[in-house]
């Protein structure tokens, strides 16, 4: 279980995450929603410890992960995989090596540095790639693939870490609708088949409603919504997103006010 208590992160005068408390049971598929700048990314990055909290605690299975240092911190990061909006692959390395980066914690450093990956780890990485239909692209440079393919490589990298939780930070925001669907489906499969907890930042409410079993809404770094997707009525979405609400709900734009239309005409 992931327990967050009084988590706060300040950047200078601005507060990105403000006294946030949350409990997420193992195996859940939780969507984090809210407008840009609401603190969604900062929250995920603090859980992986890419950023340190200003105050508060994050506990995983009762272990405080905000105080981890050195080897323990590296081990925690291997257990909590991260998927990024811009994929964050090494574009000049081939696809299989990018996936093997997810095995770094399981392989002796000298073997990895000499690229003498154990056969077992190669097999794991290649199997994960093939699971997403990418086995034949293993030798290609990652930077030459399309966005959707790169995100699937990133998912394979996350999966071979054998994580207990996957943090996905706007994983489909840079993808076209078809690839977005494919990546969300892959995340849902991983969640169901292996029981890996998934915490996923999403901008699109439509995707969030369809894939997540629970939604958490942030505004100005504070928790303002925490319920099943069905409870997210249009009125709640309106209060979460304000004027952005129409974009994220995929409803047709309203007619322009008369005065404005007249002025444009």
């Amino acid at each position: 279980m992931l327990v967050i208590q009084g988590l706060t992160r300040r950047f200078g005068a601005a507060t990105a995450v403000d006294n946030l408390s949350l409990e997420i049971p193992r195996g859940a598929f939780v969507g984090v929603i809210g407008r840009s700048g609401a603190g969604k990314s900062t929250l995920l990055r603090m859980i992986n410890r890419l950023q340190d909290p200003s105050e508060g605690q994050i506990l995983w299975q009762g272990q405080d992960i905000t105080t981890l240092r050195g080897a323990e911190l590296l081990a925690w990061r291997a257990r909590c995989a991260m998927v990024f909006q811009q994929f964050n692959l090494s574009p000049r390395l081939d696809v299989l090596t990018n996936v093997l980066v997810g095995r770094l914690h399981h392989v002796p450093t000298w073997r990895a540095l000499l690229r003498m990956w154990p056969q077992a780890d190669r097999a794991i990485a290649l199997s994960a790639l093939e699971q997403f239909g990418m086995g034949t692209l293993a030798a290609q440079a990652a930077g030459q693939l399309s966005g959707g393919q790169q995100q699937r490589v990133a998912l394979a990298r996350a999966l071979v870490q054998e994580p207990e939780i996957i943090l996905a930070d706007e994983p489909v925001a840079s993808l076209d609708p078809r690839n977005a669907e494919m990546v969300m489906q892959a995340l849902a499969d991983i969640n169901q088949r292996y029981g890996i907890t998934v915490l996923c930042n999403l901008h699109s409410l439509d995707l969030a409603r369809r894939y997540c079993t629970r939604l958490v809404g942030l505004a100005h770094g504070r928790l303002v919504f925490d319920d099943v997707p069905a409870a997210l009525t249009d009125a709640v979405a309106q209060s979460l997103y304000g004027i952005e609400a129409r974009d994220v709900m995929d409803s047709p734009p309203p007619a322009l006010p008369d005065g404005f239309a007249a002025a444009v005409a």
């Binding site: 081939d94 299989l96 190669r122 097999a123 794991i124 290649l126 199997s127 994960a128 093939e130 699971q131 086995g135 034949t136 293993a138 030798a139 999966l159 071979v160 054998e162 994580p163 207990e164 088949r193 292996y194 029981g195 890996i196």
Partner: peptide, 25 residues
């Protein structure tokens, strides 16, 4: 992770590994 990662059957895995090794050589 409650379940180990599944491996492809050897018959399917071997040609993929060989193809990768060829292009790495």
């Amino acid at each position: 992770m409650s379940q180990a990662l599944p491996l492809l059957p050897a018959a399917q895995l071997a040609p993929l590994l060989a193809a990768y090794a060829r292009s790495r050589r």
